[in-house]
Computed example of a mutant assay.
Amino acid sequence: MTFGELVRAYFQHYTIMAYLGLTVAAIAGFAFYPAGFWATIFSIAAALFVYPLAWHLLHQYVLHGKWMWKSKLLSPTWKRIHYDHHQDPNHLEVLFGALHTTLPTIAVATLPVGWLIGGPGGALAAFATGLLTTCYYEFMHCIQHLAFKPKYKWVQTMKQRHNEHHYFDETGNFGITNYAWDRVLGTFYEKKERPKRSPTVFNLGYDEKIAETYPWVKDLSGGIASGHPRRRAMRQKDGTAQG
């Protein structure tokens, strides 16, 4: 995939169009209910500080938590927003976050802090910042997962850390575009620091034994896949050819 093909695919995705449309709406709202210059600057800065932390904590304790699969009500959401992504990290249909989960997260992480700093205008400025930050996250997430080799070393390093999270050990490197909070919270690592691959890197701990008690994710998935996704695909292809 070329960079141009990646850009075209990215901007044609419905979630990105939704984020950009809401950003325009937030900016228009700000024009009617503006905050002062410094209140706006501080609202934007606060959103840029809070949003990555909120994402990190949600990623570590919700998406990688071992409690959503225990609920028949929540297990379909967990399957869609993270289990499927780890089962096959390069599957485009689950690469982008679902709007019904991302938009409330952006709103909760940005609107209150913006409102406290600058009232309605500050809240709108912070919300727009969160939306654009999400667009940036999603673009870098595409680079990390699709067949595209980034040109710049810093992007290559970012992609390497994220791929380690998906293909080596899912208990660290929770960041997407930077790993500052991983360093602060003690979850940052490089592959050379961990000698063995995590046995749950592709299933997040949801295995056949767990499914005996909490079967809903397995039922929705038509079973539980195990092992590297490319090797699974090769086995399926060989089985089809033999059949």
Rank of each mutant, 00 (worst) to 15 (best):
R194V: 09
G175R: 11
F188L: 10
P195K: 14
S226M: 12
F202S: 11
H166I: 10
S226R: 14
Y214C: 06
E190C: 07
Y179H: 14
Q236Y: 13
D169H: 13
E190S: 08
E170C: 08
P199S: 04
E208L: 01
R231W: 06
N178K: 01
K209V: 09
M234Y: 03
E193N: 12
Y179F: 15
H165E: 01
T187S: 15
N178R: 02
N203D: 15
H165R: 01
L204M: 14
D219S: 12
F174Q: 07
R235G: 00
K237F: 14
E212D: 08
V201T: 05
E170A: 11
P195M: 08
F202K: 05
P229N: 04
S198M: 01
G175D: 06
D169L: 00
S221Q: 06
E208N: 04
V184S: 03
E193I: 04
T213G: 09
T213Y: 14
P195W: 07
A211F: 12
L204W: 12
G172F: 13
R232G: 05
I224H: 03
G186L: 10
I224G: 02
P229C: 04
A180M: 04
A225T: 15
R230Y: 09
L185A: 05
D182E: 08
G222N: 02
Y189C: 00
S221E: 13
F188G: 06
D238N: 12
D238C: 07
G175T: 08
G205A: 10
L220W: 09
N203I: 11
R235F: 11
H228Q: 11
G222R: 00
F168N: 08
Y189Q: 02
S226H: 14
H166C: 05
A180G: 07
G223Y: 02
Y189A: 02
F168E: 01
G186N: 10
H228V: 06
K218V: 02
G172I: 11
H228N: 15
T177M: 04
G172N: 12
G172E: 11
K237Y: 10
P195L: 12
T187H: 09
R235S: 08
V217A: 15
Q236E: 15
R194H: 00
F188H: 14
V217L: 09
Y179M: 12
G186P: 08
G223L: 02
W216A: 07
F168G: 04
